[in-house]
Every structure is written in structure tokens, then in C-alpha cells.
Amino acid sequence: MSRLTAPSGPGRVEPRWVRAVRGASRPRGGSRATNPAPRRPGGWTPWLYVAPALLVLGGLLVYPVYQLGLISFMEYTQAQVSGGEPTRFRGLANYTELFADDQFRQVLLATVGFAAACVLCTLAVGCALAVLLTRVRAVPRLALLLAALGAWATPTITGSTVWLFLFDPDFGPVDRLLGIGDFSWTYGRYSAFLLVLLEVVWCSFPFVMVTVYAGIRAVPAEILEAAALDGASSWRIWRSVLAPALRPILVIVTVQSVIWDFKVFTQIYVMTGGGGIAGQNLVLNVYAYQKAFASSQYGLGSAIGVVTLLILLAITLGYLRLLRRQGEEL
């Protein structure tokens, strides 16, 4: 162990391999810069080619987001939808109401914390198992892959219900195995969040694992072999060889996980009965659903949606910028 952490150990040499790996892809990227000329005469032609994609994107993305934004400035409840009362422009009133609401701030905080924990756990479990996949023989690898795919393929509602049953205080096997009597996991705030976190990690690690596993397979075997010959431990190889080589993949997987875990709905809704005891396990999406659809305050619900959208955009853009500032290509 001490050999590896010594400054003269392989750690010093690794950056060069890493550069070599990245260097290999560079010529291709560079070649694009050397022939910019053919673009000009095209004029409208490129637009024609992307038009179908743009139209679909515009229809499926821009229009709903536009509607969401518009409704968030309106007084828009069931009475307005069904024509009982006229729709009224409220300006920023929905937003001021939202930010004056203690519960909203609390939910926002809980969502950020919960999503962060979920992302960290998912990435840790997914990456660890991906490395494990490359280390084991065919049969256990197949078993692990099948188990992960099973978790991946399970519908969220089914998965949540099964987890809830496993942890049921009266009938669940987990309490019996742990010997903690009839402990109710959904009663305490943190135990309920922990339970949901376990389910979220369980159903989202396969994506991380499979993607990272594919990435590791693409890393030239001689580099890994060289590191192993130099006596690098698994952790060292991961940190100094694999992780830098897999950077683009990890970026995508992280951004995906952030977005998924921030928007978690089904698990909370099913496992904590719509937000837990006295709403202690509410996250933004469930809260927005409660406002918009349970109590028909579509305007307020849309405002929550817009806030969620902005936060996710900010996190994603901030993360990408951070990476770029570190001099990394995406």
C-alpha cells in the first residue's frame, strides 16, 4: 500500500498514459477544424436537414415549456380551465407566493439533499460494480448483468411496492432478518428517505454500471496491463487511469443521474404514501403534483415546474462549465 502512495510510485507516471489515451482521439477532432470551407455555400440546406429534428424538438419540448412558463404567470385553477371564471394574468404572484411558503423552501432543500445523496450512491455503486464486472469470470458476470437488467427493467411502481413490502413492519422479511421487531421505516423522516434512496439506487445503478462497463471495455487493455504490472491497486487504476479515460462517459452519467434523481416522483409517491407523515418526505415533483393536480392550482404547480427546470439547467450548465475550466474536453 505504502509503495503506491509514495511520490515515486506509478502515480507519477500515469498522467502520461492518460494523455496518450486522450491524444489518440485528438487527430479526429482536429481534422474538423482544418476544413471549415464547405459549410458556406450550403445556405439553407443544413437547416433543411435538421428541420425534422427541430420540428419534433420544438413540438415536444419548446411548446410544453412555453405553456408551462405562461401558465405559471396566470391564475389558472380548475374554475378557469372549465370556464367557470376568466383566466387572469397574475404576473409574478405565483412565484412570490411560492418563495414566501416555508414548506416550499423546506421541500426544495430536502430535494437537493436527497438528489445529491442518490446521485453519489448511484455513481459509487454503479462504477464499483462496473469495475467488478471486468474482474470476474463469465458466469458470475452474466449473473450480475442479469440481476442488474432485471432491476432496470422492473417498472418503478412495481419496484417501489416490492421494496415497501420487504421493509413492512408486520410482514416484511427485512425487519425479521435484522431482528428489529416491527420497526416502521416510513415513520421517521430519515429512515423513510433512506428506504426510498435504496430503491432509487437499486433501479438506477444498472444504467451507470452498463454504460461505465462499456466505457472500460473501450480502454486499451495494454494501458491497464501496464498499470497492473507497475503494481497499481484497483483503486489506483480506477482513480488515475480509468476515471480520466472515462471522463466523457462519467459526465453524461452524472448529468443523467442528477436530472433523474432530482425529478424522482413515483418512488416517493408510492413508498411514503404521497409525501410521508405530515409531508416530511415531500420532494419538488410530488409537491408540484399536489399543488397542480390534487388541489387544481395549475398556476402554482407550473411555477414549481419552472423553478425545477431552472435549477436543473443551472446545475447542469454549472457542472459542464466547471469541467471545461479544468481544461477537459467533453
Binding site: 412555453y66 405553456q67 405562461l70 378557469q80 372549465s82
Partner: peptide
């Protein structure tokens, strides 16, 4: 045109 066309819907339950 979009702005004009896409105000949130209200159905007439007169």
C-alpha cells in the same frame, strides 16, 4: 404567432 395562438385553454361550459 405562437404567443397569440397558445394562451392556456379555457373550455366554454356555458
Amino acid at each position: 404567432a405562437l404567443v397569440a395562438a397558445c394562451a392556456p385553454q379555457t373550455s366554454g361550459t356555458s
